[in-house]
Write a protein that binds this DNA or RNA. Structure first.
Lengths: 115, 115
DNA sequence: AAACCATACCTCAGATTCTTATGTATGTAA
DNA sequence: TTACATACATAAGAATCTGAGGTATGGTTT
């Protein structure tokens, strides 16, 4: 991740959610997508991403498929059945956490961490 | 802390923000306040809290004042000048991060991680 | 009286997750 | 040929947590 060490553990959720939307993605593509979506503000480092992908695969949440594209090897990741269930779980967990964070940090405004 | 390992990194911000609102607090009080504000969903463990407090003090963001209350020693923490500046910084950092998280995770709805 | 829980501080081993650096390999642009 | 982009990977070290343990006081339960 970029400069901030905030909310460690959200990388897994990011990966799973992107794969829910995109069917299949490869590692480098994920880093670029996140950079693009956040206008360069969040940069996922390879040292964080690849171990995370490997772990999710080892847990049976992702499956892989290696493919040759322009003399380059790409390792595509997709959600397994378990992975699809886990997205929902991880997302509501994160949502709940942000909700609680907002309760602690903004005692004045009740609804929403609005932007 | 509760079940989720999401909080890493946001604990400092929580401490600083609570002290911005409350002038001075002691460790145990902070754990109770957070538990109270989140209806028991986030429990700050002592193993996380005390080292965090000591670190913030060592960085000059907090000052301490020991006080005897009912035969019990309390260590009150307050924001220093530097600490007061840091709250603003840490809060906008966290705000920005949540904003970016929302961009990644909810591509459909543009405004707000609403609750 | 003994056991237990609440208050209040603390430390430390181990786990997890990250950063930073390094390595391999191909292709393109300056 | 130097540099950058693409594409994978590992590994040392830092940072932050969990969970267990320790000390001490005082109230409540059994």
């Amino acid at each position: 991740m970029s400069n901030n060490n905030l909310i460690k553990g959200s990388l897994q959720t990011i990966i799973l959610k992107l794969l829910e939307e995109n069917e299949r993605m490869y590692g480098y593509e994920i880093t670029q997508r996140v950079k693009e979506l956040t206008e360069g503000e969040i940069k996922i480092t390879e040292g964080a991403l690849y171990p995370a992908l490997h772990k999710l695969e080892a847990e049976g949440l992702l499956s892989t498929e290696i493919q040759q594209v322009d003399n380059r090897v790409r390792k595509y990741y997709s959600l397994t059945k378990d992975g699809q269930k886990e997205v929902t779980s991880k997302m509501s967990e994160l949502q709940g956490f942000v909700e609680n964070l907002q309760r602690i940090l903004t005692p004045d405004l009740k609804p929403g961490f609005n932007i």
